[in-house]
Write a protein that binds this DNA or RNA. Structure first.
Lengths: 142, 142
DNA sequence: TTAGATGCAAAGACTTTGCGCACTT
DNA sequence: AAGTGCGCAAAGTCTTTGCATCTAA
C-alpha cells in the first residue's frame, strides 16, 4: 500500500534521528507514487506539486540521506543523469542505448553471474545497482 | 603489436574518409600504449605529450569519431567521468563502489546472462559496455 | 584549393557547497 | 531553545558547441 511505504520512509528518517520536513515528505511521496526511475530534476518538479518551493539542492541532499538509509538506490543509465528509485524491490535495469528505455527485471537473472563473480574474483555484485546496456527488442529489429 | 594496432586505427579513419591529423594520432597512441580505462581528461593530458596543444574538446570529438568507427568503447563507472578504451578485447567491467578500482573480466562471464536476457526480454546486451557495481575482494573483507 | 578538423572560449547539463534564515524537535 | 535542514545562489565537474583559423588531401 502506498500510504504504508510512505510512512515507512518517514519512520526510517525519524529512527535515524533526522528531522521530518515538508521537503522530505514531498520527495518520499513522489518516490512512492511515481513508479518510474526518475532523475533528480524530475523528482524536484514532481515534489514541487506538494511543496512548491523545494529546490534541486534540497532534493539532492534528501536523496543522499535516503540512500544512506537504504531507502533509495540510484543507477547510472546511458549518457544522461543519475536515476533514483525506491530500494524496495531488488531488481536490475536493462537500458536501451538507442531509445533510452529502462526495463526493470527481477534480480534472479543475476543469480548465476553473481555467484560466478564472487567465486572467480571475490567480487560482491551490488544487486540494487545493476544496469546493463544494450538494445531493446524494438530497436534491435528496427 | 602496439604499432600495428595504431596503424589499424589510422587506417580505419582513412577508410572512413576522415582526415588523419596530429591530434588523432596522439589520441590513438595513448589508447594503444596505456592499457587503462581512461577518462577524457586523462587521455587529453597523455595526448599532450605527443601533441602539446591538443584540447579537451578535440579529444571528445576524436573519441566520438573513434566510437562511431567501433575502435573505441566507453563505459559509465561509478559517479565519475566516462571512461574510454580500445574496443579490441571484448570484456566487461567490475567496478568497486568503495575504492573505485575497475577489474576487467572476459566477456564469457556474461554468456549465460546474455542468452537469458535475449530469450526473456528480447534485449541484446552490449558486450562492450557492461559495468557491474559492487565490492571488490579487498573492500568486501575490510 | 577546399572542406574537414582544430583550439579556444563560452555555454550547457548535472551536481555540490556555502550561508543565513526557518522550522522541527 | 537549539541546531538540523532549507532555499538560494554560486561554484564545480564533465561535456558540448560556435566560430575563426588551420591543414590534410
Amino acid at each position: 500500500m502506498d500510504h504504508d511505504r510512505l510512512e515507512d520512509i518517514i519512520s526510517a528518517v525519524r529512527a535515524d534521528g533526522r528531522r521530518v520536513t515538508v521537503a522530505k515528505r514531498a520527495v518520499a511521496r513522489v518516490l512512492v507514487e511515481l513508479p518510474d526511475h526518475l532523475s533528480a530534476e524530475e523528482i524536484t518538479r514532481a515534489a514541487q506539486r506538494y511543496a512548491s518551493d523545494v529546490s534541486p539542492s534540497t532534493v539532492y541532499r534528501i536523496l543522499e540521506e535516503f540512500e544512506r538509509l537504504d531507502l533509495v538506490v540510484h543507477a547510472h543509465v546511458g549518457h544522461g543523469a543519475t536515476v533514483y528509485h525506491l530500494a524496495g524491490a531488488l531488481h536490475g535495469h536493462l537500458v536501451c542505448t538507442n531509445c533510452g528505455v529502462t526495463i526493470e527485471i527481477p534480480s534472479r537473472h543475476f543469480d548465476a553471474l553473481s555467484g560466478d563473480l564472487l567465486k572467480t574474483y571475490g567480487f560482491r555484485l551490488d544487486r540494487h545497482h545493476v544496469a546493463i546496456a544494450g538494445l531493446c527488442a524494438r530497436c534491435r529489429d528496427a
